[in-house]
């Protein structure tokens, strides 16, 4: 898996994080692992944490600190109704972009 260029990541990572959180409540450290499993490569917490703060500031996710079965209290993130509304707007736009890029790639390779 190659490292994705920073500028390319910047435009997509916040929505990727939002999509992961939409699939289920999660916390910061687990989110890094989930991003890696999804194919984003090794993303550092220094990249992810500011985006989590931004998503909270936009009101797209909420955070609650609560106890875990093992280990210290952690902050868990959940998507809000506004966050789901944002995703509903974002996904068609992203799909359109993917279709357009795939067409260009097909022409390039064809």
């Amino acid at each position: 898996m190659s490292k994705i260029e920073t500028q390319m990541l910047k435009g997509t990572l916040d929505n990727a994080i939002l999509m992961i959180i939409a699939q289920g409540e999660t916390y910061g450290y687990a989110l890094l692992q989930q991003l890696g499993d999804a194919g984003f490569g090794e993303i550092t917490e220094g990249t992810v944490y500011p985006l989590l703060l931004k998503l909270q500031r936009n009101g797209w996710i909420s955070a609650q600190r609560h106890a875990t079965a093992t280990g210290p209290d952690r902050k868990y993130y959940r998507i809000t109704a506004d966050g789901e509304a944002h995703l509903a707007e974002f996904l068609p736009q992203w799909t359109q972009l993917v279709v357009a890029m795939n067409r260009l790639i097909a022409r390039q390779e064809g």
């Binding site: 450290y29 550092t44 220094g46 990249t47 209290d73």
Partner: peptide, 24 residues
């Protein structure tokens, strides 16, 4: 909390948080 968890998993804080901590 996450740095301690990363340390327990054998990941150095620099690799976990990033090589440019000031920018982050």
């Amino acid at each position: 909390v996450d740095m301690v968890a990363a340390q327990a998993d054998g990941i150095a804080s620099k690799d976990h948080f990033g090589k440019d901590p000031q920018a982050a």
